[in-house]
Write a protein that binds this DNA or RNA. Structure first.
Length: 898
DNA sequence: CACTCCCGCCAATTA
DNA sequence: TAATTGGCGGGAGTG
């Protein structure tokens, strides 16, 4: 038989077989046996003890690994690719028979499946975005490579980029330490600073907010950088000491990655084309543009871009220029970082001892630097940061209050995790539905379009909740919005969390509960609790009432009473936090609002300020969208501040509309101008309508909204009335305050901690709430900024992010699980972010209010929500606190438009 | 054909 | 010297 087979097979098999073997075995094994008589003989022998037996054993031992890998690969496949492959193969198989089978199988894994981006996602999915300070996870390259089923070489590509952003650090040979995104904002900040030095004129010149001519066309800015091509040494500057560092290879991936990021951070438009980047990065070589070199550089940039994309920091777009469209990438990560993070950290109670391992790691990281070239470089950058982050956490722990918070958090964890999962699921679905396209390139020119599309990445199938959270995908949010209300709510919240780019982790740690949310947008309210949002908190408001701490405390208590400890469980918090994108947060908030709208029976929308804009007028009747417009309008109007803004503002409505039309597809980023203005407005505008959100006592999913436009007493009174009826504690949040919202949510925890210890948030927030409390007609202002920042001073106009509200939308359950607050700040400095969000949120809330059951459709569509998200995103960048934040925003906006 | 970027050779570094 | 890292560019996959 064998002989026959051979004769038959032989011709075919030899070639085929080999390949087959590699790939898989079905037919192969049988064939082979026949093929080599010798082998056959051998095989039998092994069984009896022979030398070969040992080999055999070894082989078998080894083989399992191989098998495992393949299995794992396959496992992944289904998730990612799934479908098609199987059937076709099988068919082919049958038909083709032995001859070609192997090829088919091999072919299956499409190139995409093997992409570095996907691989990176898998990689990131394995680690929490915001790992607890205590847990230090070490990464074994070999292990990961085998698990992911790729060669180690690929892992290096990923790790090198991650290392450049300090998401990981090399501890030892084959060992990396996972830091997560806690320090990401700092790292980005550093890079930005470094980038400004190097590439810098762009940024510096810009400051004006409005200046933007964000016409898409001009990218001069980029060109400018090109000219510069200066030598990198500067950037390396951070490393300073490590002399050796520069020398060898350090150049490449790591450095390249940092430079690449710098370009984004420095760029107004936040868009960098590959060729420009390549030219800039070639640096020294500038003169000789060596085509081949250029080509190689571009290849590397793709590698880096894939990883950054997986991190949710950039997305692919297309820039159309004179000649045509060029591939480019747009920065979608946090634009501004919290400047003062350090200060905040310092504030945090203690520094403390690090857990050995972690500390050790940190230490090594730093200390090692000198010795190791690489490290030195990196360390120089942010050397201390990681450690600091850990400290915070640690420090926080010691504090009794914190501990309490944590405990509460823990409880909530389950819920949060569930929510997260749900969100993840939703996202996935959405993504699937809407588009796998997500990653696809978008043309920048089509500003609107650009905004939403994006990442599927964040969605990672799932695995760990935390993972999801981790992935910040602002974009994801939009899709969510599209989704039906109910489903949305969860997803939204989740998305929001995920989205937030900035890491609030530190803040989280500081404030026990708040920490939960910090990064996240979510707020969890007790079902019964009422929420009052004051739409435009303006400086006026701030000036008026900053609530005293005591007041706040009172309020907080109430709020707390109403809400069970919303705090997210640690993990949840992490998760939430992990998705740091601020913009995202905003979006979610918007979504939430939309959801709320649908629910809200009670919601009253009172646009007190008659916005001049016709839309506002018309809107009342209309669904959410209308409401949104109104808000926006109001904002615009309100914002006294900038005439300039006014122009932009005018644009805003447009954005919203567009967004609505496009339905969430667009990314917030594009619309920056609009967003910015809004944010500005919010900040500036004192007048903005205040909103009240009232959850029905039953409160499950539904939230009720009450708006009082601005501070209108009437509105307030209403809220008060409702509250009593509800018997639920109310929270008033200035629109601006919204940003702080998350904090607001915290009220629940606040009760325990009226005085905010660490987190500026908690303190600020609590007060704000208290003030807002129904009792006084006066709305509270908690300046979001104030909230965020440790600084008590009320942030004047900071727009609160309403994202928190969105969280609220989540439904009581969710709310419980997490009181998410958006704190964008914590990590980033947090405060600033809130502002932008606030506006949007305000708008969002409005819509809901306006909306009535009938209007649900509007809700769904409500572009407002969409718009909001977008705006948020735009705003996101500006997380800075009030005034300064505003300015920043403006700046940012200007940049973004570009 | 252009864009992406996977793959893996092989040199530089490290242990 | 062996192993680990990682630069680099050919060339394949995709649209």
């Amino acid at each position: 038989e064998n002989i026959f087979d051979r004769s038959r097979m032989a011709p075919k098999t030899p070639i085929k077989n080999e390949p087959i073997d590699l790939s898989k075995q079905k037919g192969c094994t049988p064939e082979r046996n026949p093929i080599t008589p010798v082998k056959v003989i051998d095989r039998p022998q092994p069984d009896p003890w022979t030398p070969t037996a040992n080999l055999k054993i070894l082989v078998s031992a080894a083989s399992p690994d191989m098998r495992d890998r393949e299995k794992k690969k396959e496992l992944f496949r289904p998730i990612e690719n799934s479908e098609q492959s199987d059937t076709p193969d099988s068919l082919q198989y049958d038909i083709v028979d032995d001859s070609t089978v192997d090829e088919f199988e091999k072919q299956r894994p499409s190139r995409k499946q093997k992409s570095l981006g996907l691989l990176c996602q898998k990689f990131l999915a394995r680690y929490p975005n915001y790992p607890l300070s205590t847990e230090k996870t070490t990464i074994s390259l070999d292990e990961v490579a085998s698990i992911l089923g790729v060669e180690r070489r690929r892992i290096y590509d990923i790790v090198n980029v991650l290392e450049s952003l300090h998401l990981v650090s090399r501890v030892a040979k084959n060992q990396y330490c996972w830091h997560g995104r806690h320090n990401l904002s700092q790292t980005l900040k550093m890079l930005q600073e470094a980038g400004e030095l190097q590439y810098g004129e762009l940024m510096t010149s810009q400051h004006k907010e409005q200046d933007l001519e964000y016409k898409f066309g001009e990218r001069k800015k980029e060109t400018i950088p090109d000219s510069q091509g200066r030598p990198l040494p500067d950037f390396s500057e951070p490393d300073c000491s490590s002399a050796s560092a520069n020398s060898r290879k350090d150049k490449s991936l790591r450095i390249m990655s940092q430079k690449f990021v710098m370009l984004f951070l420095v760029s107004k438009t936040k868009i960098v084309t590959l060729d420009i980047a390549a030219k800039i990065l070639i640096e020294e070589t500038q003169d000789t543009v060596d085509h081949s070199k250029f080509k190689t550089k571009v290849r590397r940039l793709y590698d880096i871009a894939n990883v950054l994309t997986s991190l949710g920091l950039i997305k692919k777009v297309h820039v159309t220029e004179e000649r045509g469209r060029k591939p480019a990438f747009k920065w979608i990560g946090p634009v501004e970082f919290p400047e003062k993070t350090d200060e905040l950290r310092r504030h945090s109670p203690t520094s403390d001892p690090l857990p050995g391992t972690q500390r050790g790691a940190c230490v090594q990281y730093q200390s090692s630097a000198p010795g190791k070239q690489r490290f030195t470089h990196h360390t120089s950058f942010n050397s201390a940061q990681p450690c600091e982050a850990t400290r915070r956490k640690v420090s926080s722990e010691p504090n009794s209050p914190h501990q309490e918070k944590q405990a509460s958090i823990v409880n909530s964890d389950e819920n949060s995790s569930k929510m997260i999962n749900l969100a993840a699921v939703c996202r996935q679905k959405i993504e699937e539905d809407t588009g796998k396209k997500t990653c696809d390139t978008e043309t920048i020119l089509n500003s609107a379009k650009n905004s939403n599309t994006t990442f599927p990445l964040s969605l990672l199938p799932v695995p760990g909740d935390s993972d999801f959270c981790v992935n910040p995908l602002p974009q994801a949010v939009f899709p969510v919005v599209q989704a039906d209300v109910p489903s949305f709510s969860l997803p939204v919240g989740i998305s929001s969390q995920a989205s937030q780019p900035s890491m609030s982790a530190a803040s989280k740690t500081e404030n026990g509960k708040p920490t939960l949310v910090p990064s996240q947008p979510f707020l969890c309210f007790p079902p019964s609790s009422l929420f009052m949002l004051c739409g435009g908190l303006q400086e006026n408001n701030l000036s008026e009432p900053l609530p005293t701490a005591g007041e706040l405390g009172n309020r907080n208590v109430e709020a707390q009473a109403a809400v069970p400890p919303p705090v997210c469980p640690k993990r949840s918090s992490h998760k939430c936090s992990s998705p740091s994108a601020p913009a995202d947060d905003e979006e979610p908030a918007a979504k939430k609002q939309t959801l709320e709208h649908s629910f809200v029976p009670l919601s009253l929308v009172v646009p007190k300020k008659p916005s001049e804009s016709p839309k506002a007028e018309s809107s009342p009747g209309n669904g959410c969208s209308a409401a949104v417009h109104l808000e926006t309008d109001h904002l615009d109007l309100a914002s006294p501040a900038a005439p300039e803004v006014a122009n932009k503002e005018s644009t805003k409505p447009l954005y919203f509309e567009e967004q609505e039309k496009q339905s969430q597809n667009k990314h917030p980023d594009e619309p920056l101008p609009g967003n910015e203005p809004i944010s500005k407005e919010n900040a500036n505008q004192p007048s903005q309508p205040q909103y009240l959100y009232v959850q029905p006592t039953a409160g499950l999913s539904s939230f009720n909204f009450l708006f009082s436009a601005n501070q209108a007493p009437g509105a307030i009174s209403l809220a008060a009335n409702q509250l009593p009826s509800l018997s639920v504690p109310c929270v008033m949040v200035p629109s601006a305050a919204l940003a702080s919202f998350p904090l607001v949510c915290s009220p629940s925890f606040s009760s325990p901690l009226p005085p905010v210890p660490d987190g500026s948030f908690s303190a600020a927030a609590s007060p704000s709430f208290s003030v807002s409390s129904l009792a006084s007609s006066t709305p509270l202002f908690i300046s979001t900024t104030a909230v965020v920042t440790p600084k008590v001073s009320p942030a004047p106009s900071v727009d609160p992010q309403q994202p928190a509200h969105p969280a609220l939308h989540l439904s009581p359950v969710l709310t419980r699980s997490c009181s998410a607050v958006k704190l964008d700040s914590p990590m980033c400095m947090g405060h600033p972010v809130t502002l932008l969000k606030l506006q949007q949120p305000s708008s969002a809330p409005l819509t809901p209010k306006s909306i009535r059951p009938a209007h649900h459709e509007a809700f769904f569509k409500t572009p407002g929500s969409l718009g909001d998200p977008v705006a948020w995103k735009k705003n996101e960048g500006n997380q800075t606190r009030s005034a300064s934040s505003v300015q920043r925003r403006l700046e940012i906006s200007s940049t973004s438009p570009d």
